[in-house]
């Protein structure tokens, strides 16, 4: 009898330990998610409404309707090899000179202009250019700005998907 009780007690202990483990895992994940949700929108976390997906931009640019102004805020070497047709070269927005160029380009635009910023130099969370450019336009009062979300790079998330590109040095 005592042996059965011990076995039951042992099983109960294992079940309780596993329950604690599951609850802890769920709590950790929930905490991580809530941290993610707490990221300011200007940090452009994946899934935020400030982002536009590549396929959506492709459709928009191919449509007959009004097109957004596409500004490239990444390094020169990437633009020269391949860029979105019609995209204007601003330069890497992590560089103050390029940020100044962005300010000057945007200064003449109405604040309700549809603008899409993109870079694609490196994996999204590490891109040093897209966030400074986005914040700058926000600071200037632009309300209709989207950042093109490319999880990995312009190569993986645009060119290799067969979306349109053109080559050429920055004008």
């Amino acid at each position: 009898m005592k042996g059965i009780e011990n076995r039951l007690h042992g099983r109960g202990g294992v079940a309780a330990a596993l329950t604690v483990l599951v609850v802890t895992c769920l709590a950790l994940i929930a905490a991580a998610q809530s941290r993610g949700n707490a990221i300011p929108s200007s940090e452009l976390p994946p899934g935020s409404p400030e982002l536009i997906q590549p396929e959506e931009l492709v459709k928009t640019l191919a449509s007959r309707g009004a097109k957004p102004l596409v500004l490239y805020v990444g390094p020169r070497f990437l633009y020269a090899q391949a860029h979105i047709p019609g995209a204007e070269f601003i330069g890497a927005a992590s560089d103050p000179q390029s940020l100044d160029r962005l300010r000057k380009r945007a200064a003449a635009l109405p604040k309700n202009s549809r603008i899409v910023l993109y870079c694609g130099c490196c994996p999204w969370e590490h891109c040093p250019n897209i966030r400074p450019a986005f914040k700058e336009l926000q600071k200037m009062g632009f309300k209709n700005v989207k950042a093109l979300y490319m999880a990995n790079s312009f190569g993986a998330d645009w060119a290799e998907k067969g979306y349109p590109v053109e080559k050429g040095e920055a004008r």
């Binding site: 990437l78 090899q81 490196c122 990995n152 790079s153 190569g155």
Partner: peptide
Amino acid sequence: AQDYGGILGL
């Protein structure tokens, strides 16, 4: 970059 098939990301 072109010789290596295009370097479209780092």
